[in-house]
Nucleic acid binder design. Structure first.
Length: 586
DNA sequence: GCCGTTTTCGGCCCGACTGTTTTCAGTCG
């Protein structure tokens, strides 16, 4: 474990978990709650959204729920000196090899420690050495271990090689879940099946696939699940749940409950874990104990067939799954002042679509014609769409040629609008923000547009200050209305650019600029925590699919889900406005 | 170690599954 000045949130979480593990190895009974605190602090920092170092730069780490005086002091020491005397001392209690072993499924702090001690693992090539010992039958001989655990560890080492390096993006995970549901539904062993966990919460990325069934025949239902043909193997199988390993190291979990208590299971297995822990702590103070089976009061279990009733019994409004992240939703539900979240049916237009009009761009052009897009928009009950092809490339075109292409596009859009249809087309453009903040199109070309989007497609690594100046400069022109896919992140591939969001939000608010929620499942950008900040500032947002073909226009629901995760209402999103109000605002 | 519409002291979410035991520890979500 290397400690240095610029630890990322992931690294900090790992460090804190190592400290927790070290305490657990030393004397679990003495440190029981300290261990819990450290792993909670690890969770809290891992799920932060903002880098902990930035929070430390600008204020107090102890403001993070789960991080108190002590942990913030130690982390502060790391950020300023690159070291922590206290953590280093604690970590001496845990062998290097044990930290590696803990990443294996079914190996936690205790087993990792025992293995590294009994087998005298040096910390070099740990997994390779462990595999040799396993094959030689040495692990089974350690007291408390046995043949089965040894075999399990061998399997885990093998499977750790094809573990996915990052989490699945939401749309991919949905497809995997749908295939399992298809398989399940061909049997008649249950009343209902649901996708739960982070999939139901519509998290941008998903760790594993969680499913639940309401059934009076749990055994048959679990049998059916475990015989899923595309599985690699069954990880575990009991009376109420089972887990499968799928290809690519993906895990699928199923839980079952009779219909009479299914509402409690829906609540439990939707999570998040942090939401549930907070909910249970709250309930405990009211003398209630919560589980997937129901609510226990004075030892008596009350069942819930419907999830809404579960929250009602706790004196709360129903909390939409997208909000269940322990970010203040429980307090709001108790006070009955949760926001009225935007819904898909509220969306009246798509503000980023790329048609196949040949705009001679250096980026990609769309696959569908403007006519096809209008037809699709009609089927989605939209009143308007914006054609936002990328700007013509600067290479190979002089400004006059660019102007000419844009003129031709305007004529094409006017032609589309002249035909009998009920969807209005805006003539727009997605314009690159050049590294210095200028735009690669002339004033005259901008004047020809109804409005423009600007976005970053190059020079992603600039400093926060430079990047902020660059973006504000690009937003300056009156025809520029929307800052599109603003962090430029690609999930699992490219990190968000660094921006001073306070400055961006303030500029947008005072100059009537809007920030896009890009609904492409690879982007989902603006991220949910920034949506919530923007909403807090009163900044207006837009929804756009960034579709390059008509099929992708259906991705709007992902954008809406992100807006909901950011606590956004209909009023926060400009393209929920009817056409005439949108025009007025424009 | 953290935290506070019963507390600044005294609590701290809850259950399933597995294997190695012979009543429970370890791990996981």
């Amino acid at each position: 474990m290397k400690i240095h000045k610029n630890l990322t949130n992931i690294e900090i979480a790992k460090l804190l978990r190592a400290v927790a593990a070290s305490y657990q190895i030393q004397d679990e009974s003495k440190n029981k709650f300290r261990i819990i605190s450290y792993s909670r602090a690890a969770d809290a920092i891992e799920h932060l959204g903002t880098e902990a170092k930035d929070i430390w730069d600008e204020g107090n780490l102890a403001d993070i729920p789960g991080v108190g005086i002590n942990i913030s002091k130690h982390l502060g020491e790391i950020f300023s000196t690159g070291k922590s005397k206290h953590f280093e001392k604690i970590l001496r209690g845990i062998p290097k090899a044990a930290l590696v072993l803990m990443d294996l499924p079914s190996v936690g702090p205790k087993r990792a420690y025992r293995l590294s001690q009994e087998l005298k693992l040096s910390g070099k090539n740990t997994l390779l050495v462990l595999k040799k010992y396993a094959l030689a039958g040495k692990i089974a001989k350690i007291p408390g271990f046995g043949e089965e655990i040894q075999a399990d560890i061998l399997k885990s080492i093998e499977e750790s090689k094809n573990k996915p390096e990052s989490r699945l993006i939401l749309s991919v995970a949905e497809n995997i879940a749908l295939k399992i549901i298809d398989w399940m539904e061909k049997s008649k062993t249950f009343f209902r099946i649901d996708v739960l966990g982070s999939l139901r919460r519509m998290a941008p990325t998903v760790g594993d696939i969680d499913l639940a069934c309401a059934t009076n025949n749990p055994q048959k239902t679990i049998e059916r699940f475990c015989s899923y043909p595309a599985k690699i193997r069954v990880l575990n199988k009991g009376e109420k749940s089972a887990s499968l390993l799928l290809s690519g190291g993906i895990r699928a979990d199923l839980k079952v409950e009779p219909p009479s208590s299914y509402g409690a299971l829906l609540q439990h297995f939707t999570g998040s874990k942090h939401h549930n822990v907070a909910l249970r702590e709250h309930a405990l103070k009211k003398g209630m104990s919560l589980s997937e089976h129901g609510i226990k009061t004075k030892g008596k279990l009350v069942l819930f067939s419907v999830e809404e009733d579960f929250y009602k019994r706790l004196g709360m409004s129903f909390i939409p799954p997208e909000l269940r992240e322990d970010r203040g939703e429980i307090e709001a539900a108790l006070n009955h002042n949760l926001p009225q979240l935007i819904e898909l049916k509220d969306v009246r237009g798509d503000l980023q679509i790329h048609s196949n009009f040949d705009i001679e761009t250096s980026h990609d052009i769309g696959a569908s014609s403007m006519e096809e897009i209008i037809f699709k928009a009609k089927s989605l009950n939209y009143e308007y769409v914006a054609f936002t092809e990328h700007n013509p490339s600067q290479k190979g075109h002089n400004p006059l040629q660019i102007l000419d292409i844009i003129k031709k596009k305007r004529e094409k859009v006017m032609h589309v609008n002249s035909s009998e249809n009920h969807v209005y087309a805006f003539n727009s453009l997605e314009i690159d923000i050049l590294p210095d903040g200028r735009l690669p199109v002339s004033e005259k070309a901008l004047d020809m547009l109804d409005f423009a989007l600007v976005s970053i497609h190059s020079s992603f690594k600039k400093s926060k200050g430079e990047m902020t100046k660059r973006v504000l400069n690009a937003l300056e022109h009156p025809k520029v209305k929307i800052f599109a896919h603003p962090t430029a992140r690609i999930l699992g591939k490219r990190e968000a650019v660094e921006l001073d969001w306070e400055k961006i939000f303030e500029f947008c608010l005072t100059n009537n600029k809007w920030i896009e929620i890009n609904a492409d499942p690879h982007r989902l950008d603006l991220p949910d925590f920034l949506i919530r900040e923007a909403v807090g500032y009163g900044v207006k947002l837009t929804l756009g699919t960034d579709a390059h073909a008509v099929d992708a226009m259906g991705n709007m629901r992902y954008g809406v889900a992100m807006a909901r995760r950011g606590w956004a209402t209909k009023e926060d999103i400009v393209n929920t406005l009817p056409l005439k109000d949108f025009l007025k605002l424009l």
